[in-house]
Write a protein that binds this DNA or RNA. Structure first.
Lengths: 356, 356
DNA sequence: TCTCATTTTGAGACCGGTCTCATATTAAAA
DNA sequence: TTTTAATATGAGACCGGTCTCAAAATGAGA
């Protein structure tokens, strides 16, 4: 079955050289734009190249130079607007800097992520931008870094790794909205995330491998504790990995006797699903339930009511990560930097006083 | 500035061969998984490779095999949920088939697209999936196809090109919703698209270079004509390239004396903006204005009212394109196929009878 | 006109794999 | 045991560029 492709015999520098009547080395010089060549020869070679429709082979070039001109990006799920926007930031910077981007979806699966990194390393990408599924399990990342491939962590840092990282101040944001909810009289506040644990239950923040989310939960729990609210660990729900899962979880919690009066959704996809379930259940936002969502997705301002969100500088997250990487690639050997971008709570109308 | 990267001296087959005490050719056989080797030698080489932590160099492999194991994808804007979802379909299939994906954003700019194709070709991608910005201007695509690189067109076909393409039956969908609107008494129906023309005005469908959109407009105008509505060309608005542009255009049309009673938005990003402008202007959907949007973005069902949309099988668009490409890469030499996926109108509540 | 520095050019090794082809080894058949 | 076929291994060319190094050409100064 695996028939060999046509392999149209592409024209090489040697072909151009022959046609131009010069040596391969000389032709390579003008075609590759390095070394010095006389004007006459340059013109001759250029003409020959055009006549033959010469197309350079980047692969061969990379072979000798050791630089492939590509950066590998591993994200959880490109379909999620969070990542697609960050990706836009990355590709914009990459293109500007003359790099091309290889994208791999990990599906938030650590094994898939490992395979992805291996593939990318084998393809000799010049550097990597990764949004690690599990921060605890970073052997493969350390290895990549050790292999001399600059690595930048996106949205999720890791204390265990001494590499560049760009994150948002999730903890601070979570603290802010939790305080606000508590000030409004909410006591039964639920936190809902897509991150999962082996038994789909949450006990302590260390169960959560996704750094950004762990920091949010830490912030959330911390403020609750300060306010004298205990046992809020039980109000943290994990495993909202698909809209269907989310639907089931939210329906369950909203139908329980001690149902929450406020929900914090860890991303816009989850926030949207919460919204849908409320509709289905005939619950009113914010009268029956207050809702705050992370990620200021574009639609959040047009719902009724518009939803209060934590605006993260998502595009800039990607952009900054790419910039950091490009700097490394250009020989910046300074020590690893940890960039924390500010978030902002956008107050809209999905939050109100807790019902009595 | 451009310091050479560390270039950690990676271990090669030759190194492994030496360590295992066999020839380079033999080591390559077991490492590359081809040819026949005795069990004893295989073990020895495997052990040596492990000891040295051998990492294969795909670049070198591609060099000789002529296959890079990558496919290039050029889309308008990965940030647009339409493309990010299609991209998900592509990456899923690609991964399954053992290919990796190189992504380039064209920004719907024909020149950028040309550059992208050139880059991709230079990197020796095995095949291409492109969502061409302009269908009329396909020289670079034809060239790619001629260079022996299979090409699949995504969402936008082209009669001028004899290559595989996967599109949605946009025309049919547009006809359906236009009929429906007319049946409800609408006469002033506007069509709004991001596609632009040199002077930002629309005269005839041939002004539109994006095939999918052109087909929709043709369907729209065709039905209008059938129904005796003339001069609807003036109701087609182009250039809604950013939310800001869209805002301006929509505000303008809704404040004119002969303002439309219905708007067809060519994608969900535009639909969202129309929604926002109505809010800002205090217009009620669907009482003052009926709205239909292409692309069943997830949020469209939670607005008040939820919006009637044309559901396109976006994921499957990408998935199918990738499948077609992989088949070609596996040696399918059948003639070019043109896959048309069905769309479906999801009736929600943003459409009502025309106001009197 | 001749020397010396400078610029151009060419020959060929090299990157790290694959792959062909000849040789060596082993197993099976006579 | 000898012949024959099948299987394993090694030597080295090759992919299409880059790059080093030495030879050749050019130009300035004496």
């Amino acid at each position: 079955m695996d028939q060999s492709p046509p392999r149209s015999p592409s024209v090489t520098v040697a072909d151009v050289a022959r046609k131009a009547g010069v040596s391969k080395a000389t032709a390579a010089r003008v075609l590759g734009g390095y070394g010095t060549v006389s004007d006459r020869v340059r013109d001759a070679v250029t003409a020959a190249a055009r006549a033959l429709d010469y197309q350079p082979n980047e692969l061969a070039r990379s072979m000798t130079t050791g630089r492939s001109g590509t950066i590998g990006v591993v994200v959880g799920d490109i379909e999620n607007p969070f990542f697609s926007l960050a990706m836009r930031g990355i590709t914009d910077v990459a293109r500007q800097a003359g790099f091309t981007v290889v994208l791999i979806n990990s599906g938030e699966d650590a094994e898939a992520e490992k395979a992805a990194i291996r593939t990318l390393l084998a393809k000799r990408v010049d550097g990597l931008i990764v949004s690690p599924a599990k921060e605890s399990d970073v052997g493969h990342l350390r290895e990549a870094a050790r292999a001399g491939r600059p690595l930048v962590l996106l949205d999720r840092g890791s204390e265990m790794l001494d590499v560049d990282m760009v994150i948002a101040d999730d903890r601070h944001a979570a603290e802010g909205i939790t305080r606000r909810l508590i000030a409004l009289g909410h006591r039964r506040i639920a936190y809902l995330t897509a991150c999962d644990t082996p038994d789909h239950r949450f006990r302590t923040p260390s169960d959560i491998n996704t750094g950004s989310v762990r920091r949010r939960i830490q912030g959330f729990l911390g403020v609750c504790r300060e306010a004298g609210l205990d046992g809020m660990e039980d109000r943290v729900h994990v495993g909202a990995v698909t809209p269907e899962h989310t639907h089931r979880i939210v329906t369950g919690m909203l139908q329980s006797s001690q149902r929450p009066t406020a929900i914090i959704a860890s991303d816009s996809v989850i926030g949207l699903e919460v919204f849908k379930v409320c509709r289905a259940l005939g619950l009113s936002i914010p009268d029956d339930l207050s809702l705050v969502s992370f990620h200021d997705a574009d639609w959040t301002s047009v719902t009724t009511p518009p939803v209060t969100v934590v605006r993260q500088p998502v595009y800039r997250l990607g952009e900054t990560a790419a910039k950091l990487l490009v700097e490394r690639l250009n020989g910046n050997h300074a020590e690893a930097s940890r960039v924390v971008l500010q978030t902002k709570v956008i107050e809209r109308a999905s939050v109100a006083e807790a019902p009595v």
